[in-house]
Computed example of a mutant assay.
Amino acid sequence: MTHPDIIVIGGGIAGVSAAAELAAFARVVLLEGEPQLGYHATGRSAAVFIRNYGNATLRALNAVSAPLLDHPEGVSDHSLLSPRGELMIATEDELDALEVYCAGASGIERVTPSQAVDMVPILRPDRIAAAAIEHDAQNIDVDRMLQGYARLFKSRGGKVITGQPVTSITRQGDDWQMSFGDRTLTAPIVINAAGAWADQVAALAGVAPAVIQPFRRSAAIIPAPQDHDVDHWPVVVSASESWYAKPDAGKLMVSPADEDPVDPHDAWVDDMVLAEGLHRFEQAVTIQVTRVEHSWAGLRSFAPDRSPVVGFDAEAKGFFWLAGQGGYGVQTAPALSRLAAAVVTGTEPALDAATLSALSPDRFQHLKKDVTK
């Protein structure tokens, strides 16, 4: 397909899921600059579905995604979710943060410090002023989800091209023309699902940026505490999100929950940031971290108001934003991919007007004008 109906730029879960949904109605080509799909943020996800994670807009998306993750028709023959739970704990200094989180949440149960320790025995009860559990937080099988959407896309006639970064995007009449390697494609619609590189893709196309800022987040795998079976522990998160820990294949994944602004790149761990985060974790538990088996970092990319940017650009015909998913990209992908397909095909989205407005690229017109002055 040298002249498809739609070109999707970005092979993370956002781009792959949107491409799969759109391929039911159109001829779609998916371009990914890396040699494989899901290389950056998707492949480095914490892989947890938390219904109450994010602002009101994201929670609305989570509510739409939940049944699609549980019954992923066409993507997998069984649920992409499995039980986990999320335990949020607060020191005296974090009580306000816990109250703010619980105030806008559903399905949250308050628990005592001793109950929290019963769930995760390595927690220090003297460091817990209050706690709450979201039993419905669940693991997401991210790899099965990504591969399932990729298979669905291909079964619908979609074409995947990897290892070919886009080098130019120009407007040619009613079409967008883009070059990669020694090849050229044209299409009337371009879906910008480039994650941390979304504003760079816009710049190639001469489109004003949506002011998407990537932030680095690090994580490490440490051995499970001796004489403890961690497999059934919930994810544990500090109320101020200064660290979190999640069981991972019989071990613990610990993150400093860092959020340092960076330029788009293949992220790596800052050793000092990781060490500081592991120290905060150690202060909350009765064990010491004596060995890190593996560490990595990924990029979470946010718009200024922390909500995704989804829809056609008001000033660039056929240029569609699917960006700014932050740390919510995997769990919101089912909802956002169906929204993208609905907007492109002109059908009724499964979201209310307030949520659609909160996602629209139009909300950043004043910022985009400031950036381009």
Rank of each mutant, 00 (worst) to 15 (best):
D5P: 06
I9Q: 02
G10Y: 09
I13T: 03
A19N: 10
E32R: 00
E34T: 10
Q36D: 14
Q36G: 09
L37H: 05
H40C: 09
H40N: 05
G43S: 10
G43P: 11
A46N: 13
A47W: 07
V48Q: 10
V48T: 03
F49C: 06
Y53I: 04
A60K: 00
A60T: 00
L61A: 08
L61C: 08
A63F: 12
A66I: 11
L69I: 03
H71R: 09
P72K: 04
S82E: 12
E86W: 04
T91S: 09
E94T: 03
D96P: 03
A97I: 12
E99I: 05
A103K: 07
G104F: 12
S106T: 13
I108A: 12
T112H: 03
T112V: 07
P113V: 03
Q115K: 04
A116G: 01
A116I: 02
V117F: 06
A132W: 03
D136V: 08
D143K: 04
Y149K: 02
S155K: 11
K159Y: 15
V160H: 06
Q164D: 15
P165M: 10
V166T: 05
T170V: 08
M178S: 04
D182I: 05
L185W: 13
I189D: 08
I191M: 11
A193Y: 10
A196K: 00
D199R: 02
V211A: 13
R217I: 15
S218E: 14
D229K: 10
D229L: 14
W233K: 00
V237N: 02
S238C: 11
A245Q: 07
A249V: 02
M253Q: 04
M253K: 04
V254E: 14
A257W: 08
W268V: 14
D271V: 00
D271Q: 00
L274C: 00
L278P: 01
L278K: 00
R280L: 15
V285A: 08
I287G: 11
H294E: 15
A297I: 05
G298W: 11
R300T: 09
A314Q: 11
A316W: 14
F320A: 05
W321D: 08
Q325A: 09
A333N: 03
A333P: 03
L339R: 01
L339T: 02
A340T: 04
T347N: 08
A350T: 01
A354N: 07
T355E: 09
S357Q: 14
F364N: 02
Q365R: 09
